[in-house]
Amino acid sequence: MDNVLEIKNLHIDVKKDDSTYNVVKDVNVSIGKQQIYGIVGESGSGKSLTALSIMGLLANPPLHVSKGSIQFEGDRELLDMSFKEMKKIRGKEISMIFQEPMTALDPLFTIQDQLMEALKFHTKLSKSEMKQACIDIIERVGIPRPKEVLKDYPHQLSGGMRQRVMIAIAMLCNPKLLLADEPTTALDVTIQAQILDLMKELREDFETSILMITHDLGVIAETCQRVAVMYAGEVVEESDVVSLFHSPKHPYTKGLLKSMVSGNRHDDLYSIPGKVPSVEQMPSGCRFATRCPHVMDICHTQTPPVQEVEADHTCQCWLYQEELVKNG
């Protein structure tokens, strides 16, 4: 299968007070055609930074990609592209939606202005064609009374509506890849489900691949085919969704699954002890070592290698390395 996006050995560093710290380390992600690929992790795990680096929108300085490659549609290296080349890709071939629909739209422009803007950047349609395209897409993302809503300003719409508008802007030029950075986090639960359903529908209609970034395993289970679990800037486990939920390998993934809320439990909710290490105090071995229930001596000194523990299921943990050594 051809991959739409191929991230290889991506490293992102941050400059802080004349020192450089690593925030994203050796991330490898491949997103197939029409696939919904999930990245799950706590805040500060580097999942949003990974998405922003695809768009070339990292706040530089202080952040910058120090190593790696991001290949779009096989042979187009995004990291080598000039600003001008990136501009043509942003919003047209790769688009992005964000966590906060309340602040993601310019308050001083009507919805129509903000939609038209994307069309002006990327198409040569006439004004009436643009207007029709706006009405069509607004209708397509399930907003009632499209003609009236186009004349509204963002503050006149609810959070769910604004997120639909964001999706409309993103889908307007029929992108090959949609980056969704916590698209449902700021919405209430019923709206969340609607937005996720909409995204799944749009993927079918527009034949778009989606990179779904979330801290919510529920969203992953609901939408994704493949998933990468990120912790402190590293992908600690990567597999298809079924395999991840049925046989999680990494202690962090197990912890995450244990701390999910499910309908029929009465005991206290589990939480992983400790907190994500800060960039200044990143452990030298396994980055999860300080919080891991199965920690061993080697974890503190050496970074575990990425290991294929099952078919198409990789995990970065010394536990499985040991097992392999024992078994043979």
């Binding site: 768009m55 929108l57 501009k87 043509k88 890709i89 942003r90 919003g91 047209k92 688009s95 992005m96 964000f98 906060e100 602040t103 993601a104 739209l105 310019d106 308050p107 803007e117 994307a118 950047f121 990327h122 964001m166 802007i169």
Partner: peptide, 14 residues
């Protein structure tokens, strides 16, 4: 620094 500036950049604005 506002979020909507990032949205505009993500649309492909100069």
């Amino acid at each position: 620094r506002q979020d909507f500036i990032r949205t505009i950049r993500a649309k492909g604005a100069s």
